[in-house]
């Protein structure tokens, strides 16, 4: 493999990570606010189908993207209403929505199967594109990939460096304290859930208008991506930078699966495509195992020098969810 093909391959990894990133960032802000959006797998499909259908009918990419984001926001709104206002289990409603949206996308998308319409093209950034190696890697992509870079930074700055971001952390960690300090917890949860849903919708429509162009019903290859994004959100420990790292790692693994295919003729391609999942379970295990109580007890039994090293490693990997994740808030 020459350096050029390697760079093109890696640039492809960055581009195909963009939709996963949108979904993960969306889920991250939603969960930061205390709401698990489990509808992601279905929302991505429905937004992909809806955005594609609108872009084919209107001939406009712009309206395609807007539609995808509106669909994502609306599904999240149903979830927010059911869980925040009606106090039903977020997991239950989210799971039902994921099933409904998936089947709805197959049902309504039937007439649009295999059609073609406008497609997002790439646009190299002047000057930056000529930087050796990095130019070809980072700056000869399409708009959405650039937006995905920006998205990581914006969400990170928002959560950690702004006042509203501080309140966002508060309503997910200690909603009662945030409320006492004047935050309208439930209204903010509504806003962040819908905003996160719109980002998840953007993820879907990024697939159908760019990364995996078109709508092919059950063989669109999008079923399952939402579940992956959900795992990456946890792997990312609700931190945008770490989440981005997870997205790129996942995208890289999938690409490696394709590249290594010729070297491993005995393994069917379908198996390599799911290769990231066992790794995902393992990483989840490493991320979470520090939270299990028996680990503390076992660690206490280990002699001093190695105990320090192990517990430091576990603490570095460890990620704890927002304390009020999934818990409804009542102001009285």
């Amino acid at each position: 493999m020459t350096t050029d093909t390697l760079i093109i391959g890696l640039a492809g990894v960055l581009a195909s990570a963009a939709p996963v990133l949108f979904a993960v960032l969306g889920e991250t802000i939603s969960e930061r606010a205390g709401v698990i959006n489990l509808s992601m797998n279905g929302t991505i499909l429905l937004a992909a189908m809806g955005g594609f259908a609108v872009s084919v009918s209107t001939g406009s990419l712009f309206w395609g993207f807007i539609t995808g984001m509106i669909i994502g926001g609306l599904v999240a709104l149903v979830l927010a209403f059911s869980s925040i206002t009606l106090k039903q289990s977020q997991v239950a409603v989210g799971f039902v929505l994921t099933m409904v949206c998936r089947d709805l996308s197959y049902f309504l998308g039937n007439p649009y199967m295999g059609l073609t319409g406008p497609r997002l093209s790439s646009w190299s950034i002047p000057v930056l594109k000529d930087i050796p190696i990095f130019g070809a890697l980072l700056f000869r992509q399409d708009y959405l990939t650039y937006i995905s870079y920006l998205g990581i930074i914006i969400v990170w700055v928002w959560i950690y460096k702004t006042r509203p971001g501080l309140i966002l952390q508060g309503i997910g960690e200690r909603p009662a304290s945030a409320f006492v300090r004047g935050a309208n917890v439930n209204r903010l949860r509504y806003i962040y859930t819908v905003l996160g849903g719109a980002l998840i919708g953007l993820a879907g429509v990024t697939y159908s208008l760019s990364v995996k162009y078109g709508w092919k019903g059950t063989i669109s290859g999008l079923d399952g991506i939402g579940w992956i994004a959900l795992s990456i959100t946890i792997f990312g420990g609700w931190d945008p930078i770490r989440a981005a790292f997870g997205c790129y790692l996942f995208s890289l693994l999938q690409w490696l699966g394709l590249v290594l295919q010729p070297a491993l003729p005995n393994i069917p391609s379908q198996v390599l495509q799911v290769a990231p999942f066992p790794l995902m379970i393992l990483t989840l295990l490493f991320v979470n195992i520090g939270n299990a109580e028996w680990v503390e007890r076992t660690l206490a039994a280990i002699p001093e020098p190695s105990r320090k090293a192990i517990s430091r490693l576990l603490r570095a990997l460890r990620a704890s969810p927002p304390a009020a994740l999934g818990v409804p808030f009542e102001s009285e």
Binding site: L38, W227, S231, I234, M280, L284, L285, N288, I289, A292
Partner: peptide, 12 residues
């Protein structure tokens, strides 16, 4: 034993 939520472990 691993502290992995059953939803995510199960999905994987």
């Amino acid at each position: 034993f691993g502290g992995v939520n059953e939803i995510f472990g199960g999905l994987g």
